[in-house]
Amino acid sequence: MKAMPMPDTFFTASPHWGWLIVFYFFIGGIAGAAFFLSALLHLFGRAADRPVVRTGYLVALSGVIVSAILLVVDLSRPLRFWHMLIQSNTGWPMFKAWSPMSVGSWAFALFGVFTALAALGAWAEIRAPASPLRRLANGLPGKAIAVLGGSSGVFVAGYTGVMLSVTNRPLWGDSSVLGGLFLSSAASGAAAVLVLATTWRGRRDATSLEWLQRVDRGALMLKGVLLVAVVVSLGAAAQVLVGIWGVALAAVLIGGVLVPLLMRRGRWSIPERPMMVASALLVLAGGFLLRVVVIFSSESVYVMGAGVHGP
């Protein structure tokens, strides 16, 4: 009659973070990492990388806009979104350095500003080549924005995982490696998006693509390692992965990490376009599925009466 010993996290309640949050984690992560990669290309790349840099900034901006909508809509009281930044009853700024969501909110807001500026520069580069904006974008201010936006972007891509770890929920609170995992996954996803965007527009920015492939490979390898690290770190809480969610996570590891890596094994030059696209799509699918598994496997544990019911 005794209840099975349960990890303490299993006694907690669901925050009802569903598809909106899955999409935010996915899109926001890609946006942050895309800016980060673009900033690297911006700062350390060549003139030939400029189209990809511009694409990256625009991808980041699109991602930020979508993410902001997702985040606000997900609030039960969306019109109070600003309470994250301003204390509603005192008017003072609201900031808790030890709360990843509080810090994340600020980081996201700043990232949004930098992304907008960077995207404006990118727009100027194409549409208004003669404007002073373009000089600013290519000059020191542009570099400064790349640095600041890249830093906040990498934060946005990574804090979501830390935020999940700083909870008491099943799986999330049982591992402190989710931040790294989400960041590496976001980076590989961002690289995949940039690859797809570049190839889809019919450009063969070979040199940029090659760099993206290298980053992607590194990010995927890191993701694979961290994925295993997460599972190992779960301990008894790994029982959330017994069943369908474990299978899904294995699919992420195999289909979203190992297969894309294998698809490029030995090919140090740019792969054939179909292969490249397939690989990027797999990476993206894997990144998305990873977030689905992380969110919903945790949700599948629920408390009823005095008992905990597993997935």
């Binding site: 204390q87 005192t90 003072w92 700024p93 609201m94 900031f95 808790k96 350095a97 030890w98 709360s99």
Partner: peptide, 13 residues
Amino acid sequence: GGTALGSLIGLGV
């Protein structure tokens, strides 16, 4: 650890 910093730099809270 991490919280320590936070306690010191929490703004207005």
